[in-house]
Design a protein around this nucleic acid. Structure first.
Lengths: 343, 343
DNA sequence: GTTAGCACTCAACTCACTCGAGTGCTAATC
DNA sequence: GATTAGCACTCGAGTGAGTTGAGTGCTAAC
């Protein structure tokens, strides 16, 4: 048992060192820096075993060893010690949630910026509105031009969605107000997913003069299916260029291209399962361009039913401990923010 | 006179070639590809003159020559031939304006994506609301939660701004509607810059029960000064990595960092003067990180008084002709879109 | 004024060489 | 039986000499 224990201690040391330096780790390094009681020859023997077990790869005969994907998986599952954050780091994260938010959007992009600058990885923040759970609180039509108006939907949780509507014929401002008021009353609590249906019903029975507006509403509402994502922001893309694994511009380019494509980012973040945290390593990210990356995501349910997903993307030799600590601090701060908001 | 003409024809050939290849241009290349009647020795003499005039630099004795900043300036001012776009390119640009827009934002980000993919440079699109010119059309308060409501300002041009308001005490929904209706009538046409002032006046004379709301409005409206930017999007950052001038990761990083900082992008786009197009080369961009870049910007005044500024950023050896053609095509399509919208 | 010709320059490439960090194996040691 | 010292071996990275080729500048001839 002791033997096995030692093997994994050595593996852990190798991973730790590799995460720090990005250089293949040799037996002497381990013997000097981590296991001073053992000679390099002993370490060599153990490393040879670990390679056979599939935890280590050697780029070539005389280059030291590099952790395999399997090693990272083990590391994350079994060996992870959460790395405590410095006082400054904690304070910095808190400060991002501190100010009362008066801009409608922008929390995501502020968070993305903050997280990327704390971790030195790339951060993506997404807020999703699970449509099934959203129920209408109010509805308001605001005239914008002659034949256009802005439809504002406020959900029971306080989330706001807007949508521009084209009208067949000009409609008086006063009329829009009336329709808004009536509909708000009739539709309060209606799940967004059934909105279109209900509106069609109501349009049929509506007085002649507002039937046009009602029909436009029924046709155009709700914002189409994918409109689920209410905010998406990415920060610190350029951080990736600091890692030696991306000193090759072509590799960097293919990854950055992914991080510029909304759909791909969403797909990366959406793989998040039911757990609070998820760590996907290399091939587990399920995308060719990110097969040498890891993605750590965290998901928080907001009080209004929206779901906030945060992802940190970096090379597979990521500082998993630190990243998880940061994310859990974010979760805590976010929780406090929500409490305060409701209190 | 003919002599001088020839000199500049040669300079133009050098610039054209360098823009294409990014490689220092030698006398033989010019003699073979551009001026077949002249021997390389003659070209050499001319190039020597051009270097003395400050239009060419030589990286070292045996490496051909590279246009200087001064050469690009001359090129843009005097030699520029607009490069006609291919049918596909024109069609592609038009198609971006084709679909009727139903998302409230997103036109900028769609444009940024399209422009970067047509030009292979990085595109930034910004929509600015010159506050002085904005006048109120409607104002609407929508309850969001107990003590919060959403203030929606619609300007005469049809632009929409929103802002979340904290209330001292809970206010009934019906009351918010009443206040909205009354204020909309009283404030119609009021310049946004005077809104706060006018609201303070009105609050003083308002009935007791709505004075709280009015005061909150006066205090919090209008969105603070910098809130001028109503949309900002950047596309095709990763395009830059394809240029040999950024095969050095450190150079790429410092530039990409700029292109991730909202404030810096805004500052780059805001240097745009009164003209429709502006070309800023190298040091003229006024930023250390972009001293080897050029920025071509175009500004379009939208019908509602907003100003749309588009910038394309690339290495100084930019395809200025093509970029300007693209931008003028965009201007045309945008014009058509606006006409249609108003018609 | 133009050009052919030639000496010269210099980055980029190749090739042989060395260096050093690493490994694996074996035999001695604890 | 586990550990370690020792040694032969491997291989990338770095070094330096030599070669190549694209380029220049200058001069003399056309």
């Amino acid at each position: 048992m002791d033997r096995i224990d030692r093997k994994y201690r050595i593996l852990q040391a190798i991973i730790d060192d590799y995460i720090l330096t990005a250089l293949p780790v040799g037996s002497r390094t381990i013997s000097r820096k981590y296991e001073q009681k053992l000679s390099s020859a002993t370490i060599r023997n153990e490393m040879s075993d670990l390679e056979e077990l599939g935890y280590l790869d050697s780029p070539h005969t005389s280059a030291g060893r590099v952790p395999s994907y399997k090693a990272y998986r083990l590391y994350v599952d079994q060996m992870l010690r959460p790395e405590p954050l410095s006082v400054e780091e904690t304070a910095f994260i808190r400060s991002c949630f501190d100010t009362r938010i008066h801009q409608v959007e922008d929390l995501s992009s502020r968070m993305a910026k903050a997280l990327s600058s704390v971790t030195h990885y790339t951060a993506a923040v997404m807020t999703r509105n699970p449509r099934a759970e959203q129920r209408l609180s109010h509805l308001q039509l605001v005239p914008v031009s002659d034949r256009r108006c802005l439809l504002i939907l406020v959900t029971l949780g306080g989330a706001v969605r807007q949508h521009i509507l084209d009208l067949d014929a000009p409609v008086a401002q006063e009329e829009l107000y009336t329709v808004s008021r009536v509909l708000s009353k009739q539709l309060e609590g209606c799940p967004l997913s059934q909105l279109s249906e209900r509106l069609t019903q109501l349009a049929a029975g509506a007085p002649q003069d507002v039937r046009g507006v009602m029909r436009a509403l029924a046709q155009d509402t709700p914002p189409d299916e994918q409109d689920d994502i209410s905010a998406l922001a990415v920060g610190g893309r350029s951080n990736l260029l600091s890692f030696p694994e991306y000193s090759d511009v072509d590799k960097a380019k293919s990854l950055l291209r992914v991080l510029e494509t909304k759909e791909k980012i969403i797909s990366l973040l959406s793989q998040h399962g039911e757990m609070e945290f998820s760590v996907r390593i290399g091939p587990e990210t399920g995308m060719e361009e990110t097969k040498d990356c890891s993605i750590v995501t965290a998901s928080y349910r907001l009080s209004d039913g929206r779901v906030n997903t945060i992802g940190l993307i970096g090379p597979t030799r990521m500082q998993y401990g630190k990243v998880l600590s940061v994310l859990s601090q974010v979760g805590q701060s976010l929780g406090e923010l929500l409490e305060e908001k409701n209190g």
